[in-house]
Design a protein around this nucleic acid. Sequence first.
DNA 1: CCCACTTTACTCGGGCCCGAATAAACCCGG
DNA 2: CCGGGTTTATTCGGGCCCGAGTAAAGTGGG
Lengths: 386, 386
Amino acid sequence: MTRRPAHGDLIRTEILALLGSAGPLGRAEIAARLGVGAATVTEHTRRLIGEGFLRELTPRASGTGRPRVPLELVSDAAHVLGIRVAVDHLVGTVVRLDGQIVDEFRLAERVAAAPVRLLTEVVRHEIDARRDTTPIRGVGFAVPGMADPEAGVVRLSGIMNWHGLPLGAELSRELPVPVLVDNDLRASTTAELLFGMGREHDDFLVLGIGDGLGMGVVLERRVQRGADGSSGEFGHLPVDPEGPDCTCGNRGCLQALVGQAALLDRARRAGVRIAPEDGLPGLVAAAERGEREVLRLLSDAGALLGRCVAGVVNVLAVKAVKVIGESHVLWPYLGPSFTASAGAGVIEPLKDLSVTVSPWRDTEHARGAACLLLARSGALTRTLPH
Amino acid sequence: MTRRPAHGDLIRTEILALLGSAGPLGRAEIAARLGVGAATVTEHTRRLIGEGFLRELTPRASGTGRPRVPLELVSDAAHVLGIRVAVDHLVGTVVRLDGQIVDEFRLAERVAAAPVRLLTEVVRHEIDARRDTTPIRGVGFAVPGMADPEAGVVRLSGIMNWHGLPLGAELSRELPVPVLVDNDLRASTTAELLFGMGREHDDFLVLGIGDGLGMGVVLERRVQRGADGSSGEFGHLPVDPEGPDCTCGNRGCLQALVGQAALLDRARRAGVRIAPEDGLPGLVAAAERGEREVLRLLSDAGALLGRCVAGVVNVLAVKAVKVIGESHVLWPYLGPSFTASAGAGVIEPLKDLSVTVSPWRDTEHARGAACLLLARSGALTRTLPH
DNA sequence: CCCACTTTACTCGGGCCCGAATAAACCCGG
DNA sequence: CCGGGTTTATTCGGGCCCGAGTAAAGTGGG
């Protein structure tokens, strides 16, 4: 019976994201596209203009009728910082209101042992360096593992060895700006909702293929979190009770069969020569060389992935899937069988399932982390530190 | 960007359902349990009392402080009719505000060919018969197949041979009360949300085991519908690409492996003697006799089901599953392996997944259909026909 | 018996969203 | 150049929800 707040400013956020991705629009068109009353748009835009987030352009007559007044997002009115925390490095991005990255950096630090101290240091440095230009209005952190964004707690991150770490609270104490923490894939899912798939779909899945396999779920334009923020553990979908042991303690998880490590392992055991130090690139290279075993392995993996995704698609009846993650470089080899198998496994009314893959860089989760802030535009207007 | 209405009166509905299942409560306690402001409860209860749906009981001092004024649901203030439409019969229930069934009937009619005429007739008769007692305020229909409750259209029901049948619109024209149409499992899921699992969980799954296999999904106290209301097709989860053909046209669907028909078929092929005319009871009898093959078959089926459910649980991070459907009579034989396998397939933080089975009768979907009305209490207060 | 104290319930002002009515700003044709 | 038509934007009143403050109705101690 816990009534979960829709963490306010939903329409504000939608207006900003719409103008950020679809360019200047008149108020009437904003209302139409968002399915919102015209009065609501007038009221919100008035305030957003006052806050400097929007700007009116000169009216342009469009044939007949009163000319619309296009509203433009002032993209640089606010910047937010997004940090992706990985096991052996950090990626940071400075992101504008329209979701575009204006700056990025990478640090080869292992933060697992003393996350609060190290992250505080990095963020403080970045905030200070930008004090004289567009100031940073908030920081988002994308972490691997199960993170509860409401509480700002990392419930369980095996790879970081964190258990119930109250990262949000501790960083909030140290930092002069709002702090949000979420799972890395959900962060990128949020970015998709605001600036990617969300432009065309209210319901979609985000399949994250990388070290692990994750699934972001968006239903009715809400990123689903599940109990304690532990949703999206697609990699631990049980596939084969007789399958190999998984890091999670169970057997035959999807990830233990077609995760990155599993693919490498199986390729090597099939006799493919991949040097220990170049994992994923080695696999790609082998595929590019046309090694039969690798191609078959990847094709089978794609088919299995497609079947599992089809299962989720059938249950939730979504019409679109976006594929992201560092293993996207394998997509030329996974994709065909994935698409075929997903199509074959999906019920008739969903046969036109759209599967999208787009270029992926390490910065994407960091951008997603920044988008956590943009998704709660209310956080952007808190008073800045003096 | 379609903004979906939360089909109003959400709090009204929650108040009625809470009082219907938890007995008389003071306003303060209602507010606390629903996580709603006290002012909101005052305002709503005032109106509900005015409408005759609630009644104040005599204040009872509870130790110290101002005595609470318990509010009681006037269960018989309104009745709704719920009709389950099955391929070879109809089940009707008259349901009170608290979700209890006050009357039920069963008709061995095949309505597939002329549904509007037959259903109109049945409902009109029932409304007329009750005109002098508590009048019927609305009718819900639970149909097999994909139904879009917003539009009231049955998109696709193979078993009824309906394609895009606008049942809601046509019945609305013929009937003097509000009409709602939904998929049968989602109807029962709605009943669970109001009066069952929903009392303890905001997020849960409803596994429907019967002729087909379905899955109702409740997230953040909302019954998910998916695109065009076609969510929940758990039975067509692709399990084995080499598996048997399924009625849906694909191969190796879960339902083709462990649906009722599949189980019967496999039992017979394993040499178990079950008369053609007693399907499910025959299977139960064989299991009760302790036939090895049947027990193993059912145990394997339970394990497979549990694994598939675990997959969905992992992705959505729900903490509870309710099992309903006519095959619940098999649960003594499916259940143990189901529970074990679901537990084994679920990630660590979800290991305490609660699996509940409760007695099931044919009337349940009909009750669910009635609950569709109760879930939109606004529909109950439309002016009655003269 | 009256006065703190506690708990419950209500009132009030404000925020947010909407639909309908109104105003604004243009086109064009006579 | 003026009024009808059209599209855009704003205003206004109402519904719904909330938090904070206030009133109500009891208890128990001095």
